[in-house]
Amino acid sequence: MHLHLLQHGPHRGPARIADWLDSMGHSHTVFHLHEGELPPRLADGDALIVLDGPDEGDLDPDATWPRQERKLIEQALNGQKPLLGLGHGARRIAEALGAMVSRGTYAESGWHTIDLAPDSPFDLPERFEAFMWHRDIFALPDDALPLGGSEASPMQGFSWDGNRVVGLLCHLEATPASVTAMLDHLPPLGNGPYLQERQAMLADTKRFDRLAPLLDRLLSQWLASARR
């Protein structure tokens, strides 16, 4: 399979997703719409991934790329293409499905526990730890099933149309290198009870290792929708 990836900055890349795609024999192309690159043709790929990016309040109101991205997402939704969103990407997909996107009560950064929802369709443990970096959240779209939630953010993701469309607020793709790049170049999320210090985020590299099988299970389940 060939996948199109939409990236929104040099420090919010695909991280472990790129390695997983390569290891599974899939090819991918990364597009940077925010730098003026032309959007991909969905017909030239088998699936679309919209990576993390800026919060709503940090978007340039005069930028044209968000409209281009919204059009691509709508095309994928209507054209039966597998679609995955992470962070910013998940918010854009939720919005396209009619769900509300807003600033959360609490920002989250670092490692937090997610409890799987009773009706979750995801092949994931009932409780697992994931990496977080967000201030904005989304509501559950109509006809979608929830992933589950953390203490600060009860809606950490959703599945729509039989797992063909997936949105994740949390980051199963995080690696020590990707988190270090974010910490080195992105502004802090502020203050709050669910924000971790840099040392706590990076102290135990085994946490990142434990994300790998979770990402594998999720991506395998998601791309299986393309073979139906």
Rank of each mutant, 00 (worst) to 15 (best):
M1R: 05
L3R: 01
L3N: 00
L3I: 15
H4L: 04
H4I: 00
H4C: 06
H4A: 10
L5A: 01
L5Y: 02
Q7R: 13
H8M: 01
H11G: 00
R12D: 13
G13I: 05
G13R: 09
A15F: 05
A15P: 06
A15H: 02
A15M: 11
R16A: 15
S23M: 04
M24F: 01
H26D: 14
H28I: 03
V30G: 00
H32K: 06
G36D: 09
E37A: 12
L38R: 09
P40M: 11
P40K: 07
L42G: 06
A47Q: 09
I49A: 10
V50C: 10
V50L: 07
L51C: 00
G53W: 04
P54K: 12
P54T: 11
E56H: 09
E56I: 13
E56K: 03
G57L: 12
D58S: 12
L59M: 13
D60Q: 13
P61V: 13
A63C: 02
P66E: 12
P66S: 11
K71C: 05
K71P: 00
I73R: 04
E74S: 08
E74Y: 01
A76W: 09
K81P: 00
L84D: 03
G87Q: 01
A90K: 03
R92W: 03
R92S: 11
A94F: 01
A96W: 01
L97D: 01
G98I: 11
V101Y: 07
R103N: 09
G104Y: 04
T105A: 14
T105E: 15
Y106I: 00
A107R: 12
E108I: 12
W111A: 07
W111Y: 08
T113C: 04
I114L: 15
D123M: 12
D123W: 05
L124Y: 10
P125N: 09
P125C: 11
E126M: 10
R127G: 00
R127M: 04
R127W: 01
E129K: 08
A130E: 06
F131P: 00
F131Y: 14
H134W: 06
R135Q: 13
D136I: 14
D136G: 08
P141T: 08
A144S: 14
A144K: 10
A144M: 12
L145T: 06
G148N: 04
G148H: 03
G149S: 10
S153N: 14
M155V: 15
Q156I: 10
G157T: 10
G157N: 10
F158P: 07
F158N: 09
F158T: 08
W160V: 03
D161I: 01
G162Q: 13
V165E: 05
V166F: 00
V166N: 00
L169N: 07
H171F: 08
L172K: 01
L172Q: 04
E173N: 06
T175Y: 05
T175H: 05
A177Y: 05
A177G: 03
S178L: 08
M182S: 03
M182Y: 02
D184S: 10
D184I: 09
P187A: 07
L189R: 03
N191V: 12
N191D: 15
P193E: 14
Y194A: 02
E197V: 06
E197Q: 13
A200Y: 00
L202T: 07
R207H: 08
D209Y: 03
L211V: 11
L214T: 07
L214W: 08
L215H: 04
L215A: 06
D216V: 05
D216E: 15
R217D: 12
W222L: 11
W222H: 15
L223P: 02
R228T: 11
